[in-house]
């Protein structure tokens, strides 16, 4: 397994880590059991995502995609951000090792969920509960040592 130079570069120079107090939307996805939990925070003004941060417990791929994804949607309209796919995030990082692709799914889910949370708040609905992981496919087998 080897990460692309872009992933390593991202991991070395991470952006948008941390939380946003009084965020307009929070997307909590993943499952500690699988080793990846991602919380995406968004601040929305006039339909535009003005700020976006993440808190991630996970591997290098999960952390790098969190940083990439939050950077990507900053300045986007909410509608445009909903169109962001994991494929586009992965492409921006020059790809991920096959067994790490599930981490990028988490970023897309996190964004979508944060926006859903934002929409609910706008409508006066209670915030979204934490999403239970549905056992995304890791699909890797093999041993070491």
């Amino acid at each position: 397994m080897k990460y692309s130079e872009k992933v390593m570069e991202r991991f070395k120079n991470l952006k948008n880590m941390g939380r946003i107090e009084n965020a307009d939307g929070i997307g909590k996805v993943g499952n500690a059991k699988c080793g990846d939990v991602m919380w995406i925070y968004i601040k929305v003004d006039n339909g535009i995502i003005t700020d976006c941060k993440f808190e991630t417990f996970g591997c290098v791929a999960a952390i790098a995609t969190s940083s990439q994804a939050t950077d990507l949607i900053k300045g986007m309209t909410v509608e445009k951000a909903l169109e962001v796919t994991n494929k586009s995030i992965v492409e921006m990082l020059d790809g991920l090792p096959p067994e790490k692709l599930h981490c990028s799914v988490l970023a897309e889910d996190g964004i979508k969920r944060a926006i859903e949370d934002y929409n609910r708040k706008k409508q006066g609905l209670p915030p979204l509960p934490e999403k239970e992981d549905d056992g995304h496919d890791h699909g890797h087998e093999g041993e070491e040592e």
Binding site: M1, M8, F11, K12, C34, G35, D36, F57, G58, C59, V60, A61, A62, I63, E99, K100, H138, H140, E141, G142, E143, E144
Partner: peptide
């Protein structure tokens, strides 16, 4: 509260070779 692979890669930046029991490095779920 953190995952092992990130630590390993951070260590690797300093030339340190270690290992972890995290899923990411054990090669399984």
């Amino acid at each position: 509260f953190i995952e092992g692979e990130g630590m390993l890669i951070q260590m690797d930046f300093e030339g340190i070779c270690a290992s972890s029991g995290s899923a990411c490095t054990s090669g399984s779920l």
